[in-house]
Each structure stands twice: as structure tokens, then as C-alpha cells.
């Protein structure tokens, strides 16, 4: 007895990107990369793609390397690749720190970075990280390509700026110079679970003073969000415990956490405070 129970679909495994983009013009077409989110949702029949475009036979999409002063991550870059730094400096170390929180080892060997961004689960570590870094998403279709900034990418629950017929072919992350610091903290019920709240902090510190700061929060609502007020509380200040506490309090006060069976909103707010403080402490620890 077959264990799979998805609704009927057509399956294609093109050998070229052009072939994939051509297939994506079809009705209800979806890209299959690692399949770690899509396949279970198909088994539950929450996703019912009419056409499944398997991109795993397009080797040109399998890269994560420095290109044009950024880290360019192709659509077939697996999570596990980032366990060893794929870029020099703080960026590679940040991604290596974050990836340990992405699901479990077997999932990390199949699931893809771009797949996480396209799926856009609100509790995805990569989504919050890309937002904190101000990454850019490259979307291709049979008629052309365009870029979308992280701030415009996340539109709602499992909803992105990606249009029908488009495929997220690459994510670009800015390289971070040596004066950049980072911190990541999340709280989940079990190892590898989607977090109930997370914070990613990226800061540039110069002469003992925070010059730039971006803090992204994940797992608390429909999309990851930037904690702009909390970041502002840091800029121009020497990062003392009191300043960090104020920023964390600001992040908690300004966020709009959602409630579900796992966490009342008030609890998520507590977690935002704690995770922001932990991420900042990590970033600013000597």
C-alpha cells in the first residue's frame, strides 16, 4: 500500500532553467527543490499543484559563492552547505550559526535555502536572516528577471512577492566587513522545531559605538519583521547592558505577536524580549 496520498499532479524534471521556466507558465505549477515543506503539505492535500517542476536536474542552480561583491545563493543550494562558511568574514559565520537551528540534519541535506525563502514560513530562520541582512531575491520567468528587496518580499502568511510563472532562482546577501557583529537566538519547544520566536541581530560597531543595526524577528506573526525601533535604540550608543535591555524592551513593546495554541501573544512578547536581548548580547560579546 502506497503511503503517499497527494492529489493527482503532473511531474516534470527539466534539464535547463529555460525548460523549467517554460513549464512554470502552466496552470498551478510549483517548483520542487528539496521538497521538505512542499511534499508534506501535498500529502496533507493543503498544497495541490497541478504541475510539479522538479529542478534537481539543473546543475547550474547548485551554487553558493561570492559574485559581484555579494554571496549569491542558487536555487539548489542545500541548507547543509552553510554548515561550513560559504563566505568569508561575519556573514559566513552567521549563516553557519543559524543553519544549526534549521530543522534536523536529514532535512538540511535536502531542503534548500531558496526554497525556504519561497515557502516563507513565518518561523523560518533563513527568512528572518535574509530580512536582517537586507538580501535581494532574483525572480525569473519565461519573459524576464527582476529583483525584489527583502523588505518587499514577505507579503503575508506563506505569501511572497513571487508572481505566478516566476521562480526564485537566487538570493543575494551583502558581504559583511570585519566590523560587523551578529547574534541569533530562538526558542522552540523541541530541537529542530519551528521557533515560537527568534531574533537575528546584525550590527556594525565602530569605536565602541553602534553605527548600524538591523534586528529581524521571526516566528511571531505572519511574516518576519524588522524591529526598527529597537535597532534605533542602539544606534549611536555604546552597547551597555542597559542599552541592550532597552532595545529588547523596545522590540517587545513594538512587536505585534500572534496567538496560537502553542503561545499566547503575551508569551510571545516575553520571548521577543528575551531572544532580542540574547541575540544582542551574543553580537556584542567581546
Amino acid at each position: 500500500m502506497a503511503a503517499m496520498k497527494p492529489a493527482a499532479f503532473d511531474y516534470h524534471a527539466p534539464a535547463t532553467l529555460a525548460g523549467a521556466l517554460d513549464l512554470l507558465r502552466g496552470e498551478e505549477a510549483r517548483v520542487l527543490a528539496g521538497g521538505q515543506s512542499l511534499v508534506p503539505t501535498m500529502a496533507f492535500r493543503m498544497a495541490r499543484p497541478g504541475i510539479l517542476v522538479d529542478i534537481n536536474r539543473i546543475p547550474a542552480l547548485a551554487y553558493a559563492e561570492k559574485r559581484d561583491g555579494a554571496l549569491a545563493i542558487g536555487a539548489l543550494a542545500r541548507h547543509a552547505w552553510f554548515e561550513t562558511p560559504r563566505a568569508g568574514g561575519p556573514l559566513g559565520r552567521l549563516l553557519a550559526a543559524v543553519v544549526r537551528h534549521v530543522a534536523h540534519a536529514p532535512i538540511r541535506t535536502r531542503g534548500t535555502f531558496c526554497g525556504s525563502l519561497a515557502h516563507a514560513d513565518a518561523a523560518s530562520e533563513w527568512c528572518a536572516t535574509v530580512l536582517a541582512l537586507g538580501g535581494r531575491m532574483r525572480c525569473a520567468s519565461a519573459t524576464g528577471t527582476r529583483e525584489v528587496a527583502a523588505e518587499e518580499w514577505f507579503q503575508g502568511v506563506f505569501t511572497t512577492a513571487l508572481q505566478p510563472g516566476e521562480m526564485l532562482t537566487e538570493v543575494r546577501l551583502p558581504l559583511l566587513g570585519p566590523d560587523w557583529r551578529y547574534g541569533f537566538a530562538e526558542f522552540s519547544r523541541r530541537a529542530g522545531d519551528f521557533a515560537l520566536a527568534m531574533a537575528v541581530a546584525v550590527l556594525r560597531v565602530e569605536g565602541g559605538v553602534v553605527r548600524q543595526a538591523r534586528i529581524a524577528l521571526g516566528g511571531i506573526g505572519g511574516t518576519p519583521v524588522l524591529a526598527k525601533e529597537a535597532a534605533l535604540a542602539l544606534i549611536g550608543a555604546a552597547p551597555t547592558d542597559a542599552v541592550i535591555a532597552t532595545a529588547a524592551e523596545t522590540a517587545a513593546a513594538c512587536c505585534d505577536p500572534q496567538e496560537d495554541i502553542h503561545a499566547p501573544a503575551e508569551y510571545r512578547r516575553d520571548l521577543v524580549r528575551a531572544m532580542t536581548r540574547r541575540a544582542l548580547r551574543q553580537a556584542l560579546a567581546a
Binding site: M1, A2, A3, M4, P6, A7, A8, R45
Partner: peptide
């Protein structure tokens, strides 16, 4: 005859 088909019929 199959799990997928049975699931279709349930729907």
C-alpha cells in the same frame, strides 16, 4: 484500488 484514489473519493 489505491490510497490516493480512496483519498480522492473521501473528498
Amino acid at each position: 484500488a489505491s490510497a490516493e484514489l480512496a483519498e480522492d473519493l473521501v473528498e
